[in-house]
Design a protein around this nucleic acid. Structure first.
Lengths: 346, 346
DNA sequence: TTGAAAGCGTTACCAG
DNA sequence: CTGGTAACGCTTTCAA
């Protein structure tokens, strides 16, 4: 592998000069030297060591992103947004699947720090475990010492710049829609209780009911893990409940779809017997039968703006422009209808 | 940031000794020194620079993966497989979305080389463009000089270790199934013609028809780009064809689903009027209505074994164990049936 | 078992 | 405009 020394030698200039033209420095260099260096680099198939460069400049141009699962369409969309922006700015992104396991996430965090990444983005919701939080804060302190940035796309209990959606309002709006349709017996499928976003959404559910004067029925609060299978399981649980709710709001689309499929398998008609609604608006939502009504979250933009924020911050951006709250919107499809009717939106 | 020098000083040992215990060297170190070094490292919150280490050892423990789109469930599953194995072996993976644009892929390849990645895996099919190929081979030469490994999860026209599925056989088996059902007017939705896998699969289609003595009808060969939207478009094209085929085999699930949805929107019943079949078996396949019959490919395993192969090769694995061909299987669901009947599999 | 010193490939500071 | 050189943080001979 040809190094910059080889290039300099072949171009008959000093290493400094070679570095200046090769690294696009603003330092003046004669046209002649420049040409010779470029020519030498090309003929030697020179590939500048980004590692060496990172070591001396303190800028690795690598950012890490912590996600639950790359195969989950929710994270996939976010990652896409993150990467598009990263690429446009000359950054590389290391994707870390943690399956939301604290130990794995922690391990990744430390490794990312060893690699001197310029920043990290937490793509999912935050964990509330005490030990985990303490450990994270410790690593984050190291990041901070290096002026590495930390952006979170969901609420986290440690210091980070948030780029999120208003999780409480999202559920508030969802319930409002369902109530507007005439429902009052609304079941809710919550996410894992140790996730901040799950707590926020659950809080939104309870607040919404209170707001509409609907008494809270504990049996109507089911719990899943944000995965398809848990939606399937909840459908069976719903089958046992009496009296049954007329609508079920899942805290994410994957569970809503699982529930919808499960309900159909049990012989129920959707939306005639059960209105089913989700949150996220992942691509799957439009393919299921019936197409899923859901609260659309700006997944791609969350990633896009998250990365833009990270890069801006890393370049010394002002704290004034920090923190974004992106807006959501209701997407009505065919999985919801008024109760006791036989057609959607009837 | 504390460096190994600080640790050594605090532990009152030489940098060499500190390095030996911190890097888990096999070189003998007294228990006393070891303890002191470890203690010093802990108290200083020492984070070893992976960059410096990579520079001197020539092992970055980073691998790059080139994919079309992280939001495409096909690639998402592969990436998950790749990362699980990478993590287990202490590797980090940089995900590169190219949208199959040669320039982007090339740019990424060069950047990955600058970062001295230990290897690269091409997750999608290969492009056949001449200029592109020449450029890729040039970069790959640089990889080879550094003993960096190149694994491909689809056929590529440049040197790389293949871990794939038998794309021709996959289509052969799919057509066999359809013919077995009684179909002979089978349309085919091909992928982008500049992709090797698309060519392979198309070849499989033609071979299968010939094998069954079914004359090739040019109008039955439609072309898409592996995305959902193109399946939708093909549905409209199918609507115009006369005589219509009784079955349509899409070269991937996303297009099959688009076609299925499009056909239903046009008022056709599936599988009664059209049998629709896909290839890949992405998660979506089971959620659509009717659930999609498809050829299941070992997506996750492709990634898993691909990464295992890359790591083994990097560690000087023998060429004897190179190259894998994973097996596929037919998954019959409800989107296919015998022609001229009114129920699935009737 | 230990340590000194030579790199690894860049950039950046400081003279010229 | 150019060049010498220290520094980045680590591993690895080579001697002791």
């Amino acid at each position: 592998m040809a190094s910059i020394v080889d290039v300099a030698r072949l171009a008959s200039v000093s290493v400094s000069t070679a570095s200046r033209v090769l690294s696009g420095s603003s330092h003046p260099v004669s046209e002649q030297s420049r040409t010779r260096v470029l020519e030498a680099a090309r003929s030697l198939n020179y590939s500048p060591s980004a590692l060496a460069k990172a070591m001396v400049t303190g800028d690795s141009h690598i950012v890490g992103v912590l996600i639950g699962d790359a195969a989950d369409p929710y994270f996939a969309a976010i990652v896409r947004g993150l990467e598009d922006v990263a690429r446009a700015h000359g950054y590389l992104v290391i994707v870390c699947n943690s399956d939301r396991v604290p130990e794995i996430e922690l391990k990744y965090l430390n490794t990312l720090n060893d690699y001197r990444v310029d920043g990290v983005v937490f793509a999912g919701g935050g964990l509330t475990d005490k030990d985990y939080l303490g450990a994270v804060e410790q690593v984050l302190r190291l990041f901070q010492d290096r002026a590495a940035v930390c952006v979170s796309l969901g609420k986290h209990l440690f210091p980070s710049v948030p780029v999120t959606v208003d999780n409480v309002q999202v559920v508030l709006d969802a319930v409002d829609y369902l109530v507007g349709l005439g429902h009052s017996a609304i079941a809710y499928i919550s996410g894992p209780s140790l996730l901040t976003t799950a707590e926020l959404r659950l809080h939104g559910y309870k607040t919404a009911l209170a707001h509409h004067g609907i008494p809270l029925n504990g049996r109507y609060i089911l719990t899943g893990d944000y995965k398809y299978e848990s939606g399937l399981r909840v459908a069976r649980e719903l089958h046992e409940i009496d009296p049954k709710p007329t609508a079920v709001l899942a805290s994410n689309d994957l569970m809503a779809i699982g529930c919808l499929v499960g309900l159909k398998a049990l012989g129920y008609r959707v939306p005639e017997e059960f209105s089913v609604m989700g949150i996220d608006d992942i691509p799957y939502a439009q393919f299921v039968d019936p197409p899923l009504t859901t609260m659309s979250l700006p997944l791609y933009d969350l990633g896009k703006i998250g990365m833009e924020t990270l890069i801006r911050l890393r370049h010394g951006g002002t704290a004034a422009s920090d923190g974004h709250t992106l807006s959501h919107s209701l997407v009505v499809r065919q999985s919801t209808a008024s109760p006791n009717t036989h057609g959607p939106d009837a």
